[in-house]
Lab assay of single mutants.
Amino acid sequence: LSDEDFKAVFGMTRSAFANLPLWKQQNLKKEKGLF
């Protein structure tokens, strides 16, 4: 994903996403069907 796409899908920047706990990152990915 480009940075723009990433922001559109997750509603946050990559750095904000990277600061989330791993389980939360994985839950978000599953919610968005990216897993």
Rank of each mutant, 00 (worst) to 15 (best):
V9R: 11
Q25L: 00
A16H: 09
S15V: 07
K29G: 07
W23H: 15
K30S: 06
S15F: 06
S15M: 11
Q25N: 00
K7W: 07
P21H: 00
S15N: 08
F10T: 08
E4C: 11
E4A: 05
G33N: 12
F6K: 00
A18Q: 10
T13Y: 01
E4W: 14
A16K: 10
Q25S: 03
L22F: 06
F17P: 02
W23L: 06
K32H: 06
L28S: 01
K24V: 12
F10D: 06
S2C: 07
G33T: 12
M12H: 07
G11F: 04
M12E: 03
F10H: 01
R14L: 03
S2Q: 08
A18D: 12
K24N: 05
L22T: 14
D3V: 07
K29D: 09
S2P: 01
K7M: 10
S2I: 10
T13Q: 13
L28G: 01
L1T: 02
L34D: 11
L1M: 14
M12G: 01
L1C: 02
L20N: 03
K7A: 09
F35I: 14
K24D: 13
E4V: 05
K30P: 05
Q25R: 05
N19W: 03
L20M: 08
N19E: 10
Q25M: 02
S15T: 09
P21C: 00
N27K: 13
K30R: 10
V9H: 09
S2G: 07
K24Y: 06
D5A: 09
A16R: 06
R14N: 02
D5E: 14
L34V: 12
W23K: 14
N19I: 09
S2D: 04
G11V: 00
G11H: 07
Q25D: 00
A16T: 13
R14G: 04
A18S: 13
Q25F: 00
A18G: 11
Q25H: 00
L20A: 03
G11R: 02
S15H: 12
K32E: 05
K7N: 05
S2H: 00
F35D: 13
E4I: 15
Q26I: 06
L34G: 15
F35L: 15
S2R: 02
K32Q: 08
V9P: 01
A16I: 04
L1S: 13
F6H: 02
A8D: 06
F35R: 11
E31V: 08
M12V: 04
E31L: 05
K24C: 07
P21K: 02
F17I: 01
Q26K: 08
V9C: 07
F35K: 14
N19L: 13
Q26P: 01
L22Y: 12
Q26A: 13
F10L: 04
F6I: 02
R14K: 07
D3G: 13
D5F: 07
L1F: 15
